[in-house]
Nucleic acid binder design. Structure first.
Length: 189
DNA sequence: CGTACGATCTGCT
DNA sequence: GCAGATCGTACGA
């Protein structure tokens, strides 16, 4: 069951980031169906969040998708060679988003291996999972209730861990916020 | 117009 | 553990 567009309108992006864990992320790109279970996400909480591209109301060509109504994608190029995929949430002009950092490969694994040119760590980071799923800049601002990229209901994981986000040291005090969520497969931590 | 840099990944040491 | 890859975008002149 594809998640309805209303799911993405929730005002609490931190809740959504956590709630997405266990759900199924699917793409149908270049004739291949690929997908997996969300295992790692991060919330970016709009203009008030120093780590967010829309901090302080910053609005540019690149981050324009963030200001649209929730339920579309925000894809951008990072370090000149990785496409990072985000889910835009909340209402128009509230630039909230969830960065997908990792999924567990489930569907179309052979396609992912071809795209990644390796068999291990197919979707273990934000850049690599985009490559495995065939996501690039042309998939920016795409509806998540369309037929190219969408999300389906899944099983809620038993244990979820909240930690600070990765790679956002520049965000000062906001770098410490527990906005990163991971499925903890082993109980001992 | 020119320059600096990034929500990263990989392969080699 | 670390450096190099690689380029669209942001921002200042």
């Amino acid at each position: 069951m594809k998640l309805p567009s209303s799911y993405y309108l929730d005002e609490d992006v931190v809740f959504i980031a956590k709630d997405l864990l266990g759900k199924l992320f699917l793409t149908n790109i270049e004739g291949a169906l690929t997908g997996g279970i969300f295992t790692e996400t991060e919330a970016y909480k709009g203009m008030e969040d120093r780590a967010c591209h829309a901090f302080g109301g910053r609005r540019t060509k690149r981050n324009d998708a963030l200001y649209e109504e929730g339920g579309i994608s925000y894809v951008y190029l990072c370090y000149g060679l990785h496409y990072l995929f985000n889910i835009v949430t909340n209402s128009k002009d509230t630039p909230h988003a969830v960065l997908i950092r990792a999924i567990k490969p489930v569907i179309g694994i052979d396609t992912m291996i071809k795209r990644r040119k390796r068999e291990k760590d197919l979707t273990a980071g934000p850049g690599s999972l985009s490559q495995a799923l065939g996501i690039n800049l042309s998939h920016n601002k795409l509806s998540l209730v369309g037929d190219k990229i969408w999300i389906e209901e899944g099983e809620k994981p038993a244990e979820i861990l909240a930690t600070p986000r990765i790679g956002v040291e520049y965000a000062k005090e906001d770098a410490l916020l527990p906005y990163r969520f991971v499925v903890s497969s082993n109980k001992a931590i």
